[in-house]
Amino acid sequence: MSGRLKARDLGLVINTADPYSVEVGKFYAAARRLGPGQVLRVELPLKPVLTPDEFKSLQARIEHHFGAATQALALAWTTPYAVNCNSITGALALGYDAGLCAQTCAPSKLSPYFNASSARPYADLKLRPSMLLAAKDPATAKRLIERGVKSDHSLALRGGPPVNAYFVITKDRARSVRAALFPPPGLVRGVGVRVRVESTQALDGADRVLLYETGLPQVDKLDTVNWVPGALADHLTSFGGRLNDKGGQMNVLEWISSGATASYGTVSEPCSHPQKFPHPQVLLLHYMQGSTAIEAYWKSVAWPQQGVFVGEPLAAPFARP
């Protein structure tokens, strides 16, 4: 692991047609002290899914504005979150894949960023990972950003109590396909993380939670979880990345509302390919090594074309000052 992304490496995109985006983008730029040249203002349709032509226009604006120094992007909105069947974060990093939409259950592009050691993804791989500063409302988004900033350098401190990484096996066998990839339980010495592998439908009253990975269409009792700043959480299900979805399956904004700092979910039917979801051991390893939330999450997904990354990108609880 050679370094990590810093605020100077990040570009911020604000949708001027979206009051949420304008307010949250301004707050984020101040919180992470981004310079004027790091901010791009565009006008996007206020809808969940962009057409390929609408996306092409956004992509061109981004490529024109941001130079070689910009390694990753924060997108200051909740919608749009998709381009046809692709996630907007997947399309921006890997290019829009029209062919995938004919059969979304097929394998998708392998990300060259998967489990990579690079801290300069655009310089090394010509790929800019991105993450949505998405939440149910601006107030919740501001709390999310504050958690991310507060998390920096906060863990693996000498004498501090351990935090807990929960890997949950549910009765939903198809959605618990990642269980074979869960790390062994026990204390990870030197970083103060206790890995816990549990067989349950939902955690109830879990304390000092750094990581929560499970597989269900709906995760209950999130209001009982005590998160640490910088916590990561996701559930393997088909449509967790449909951020405007009011029914059927829980979307990942529920994790953010409950106090997690970053999450991930798919926007179109992925089937239960574990490669389309965060690899539990890769995610935890990169985060514990000092990566930011955007790096750890992006490096943990082998096939991210359909998955949207949500949260405060620069949260880095294990990074040293």
Rank of each mutant, 00 (worst) to 15 (best):
L58T: 13
G67C: 06
G148Q: 07
L144M: 15
P45K: 05
A262Y: 09
V310M: 02
V310N: 04
A69W: 05
R41V: 04
N244T: 14
P138I: 02
F66P: 13
I14A: 08
S108G: 15
A116W: 01
T266E: 00
H65D: 02
K276W: 00
D245L: 15
A262Q: 08
A74V: 07
A76W: 05
G186M: 00
Q249T: 03
A179H: 06
T214L: 13
V191F: 03
S151W: 07
D53M: 05
E198N: 09
S199N: 12
P19C: 10
R41A: 11
G290T: 10
G67L: 07
K142L: 03
E213C: 13
G148F: 10
R8V: 11
G215M: 11
D220E: 15
S238A: 12
A72H: 06
S154F: 11
R143T: 14
L222G: 04
G95S: 09
T140E: 03
Q38N: 09
G205W: 04
L181T: 02
N164D: 10
G190A: 07
L44P: 08
G186N: 00
R208E: 08
N15I: 05
L283I: 13
R4N: 11
R194C: 00
G148V: 11
A69I: 03
V83S: 13
D137Q: 05
A233F: 06
P52N: 12
L75I: 10
D172T: 11
V267K: 00
V177H: 09
L210V: 10
P162C: 08
Q201D: 15
R4M: 10
P45R: 07
G192R: 03
L314Q: 06
G67T: 04
R33L: 14
S57T: 15
G159R: 14
L75A: 05
K171P: 01
L127W: 01
V177T: 09
S257P: 02
R208F: 09
V225E: 10
L46A: 09
D9R: 05
A74N: 08
A180E: 08
P278F: 02
G99D: 15
L40S: 06
R147Y: 06
H286F: 04
D223L: 14
P80N: 13
N226C: 05
A76I: 02
V39K: 04
W298H: 02
T140I: 07
F167C: 12
T266V: 05
K299C: 01
V163P: 06
V177N: 08
L284I: 02
F66I: 10
G35T: 08
H65K: 13
K246N: 13
P274Q: 13
D204E: 12
V195A: 00
T266S: 03
A165S: 09
L253N: 13
A316K: 10
S268N: 11
A30K: 15
E63V: 13
G190I: 09
F114G: 03
A262E: 09
S130C: 02
W298V: 01
I169W: 04
P19F: 11
V301R: 00
E54W: 08
A179R: 12
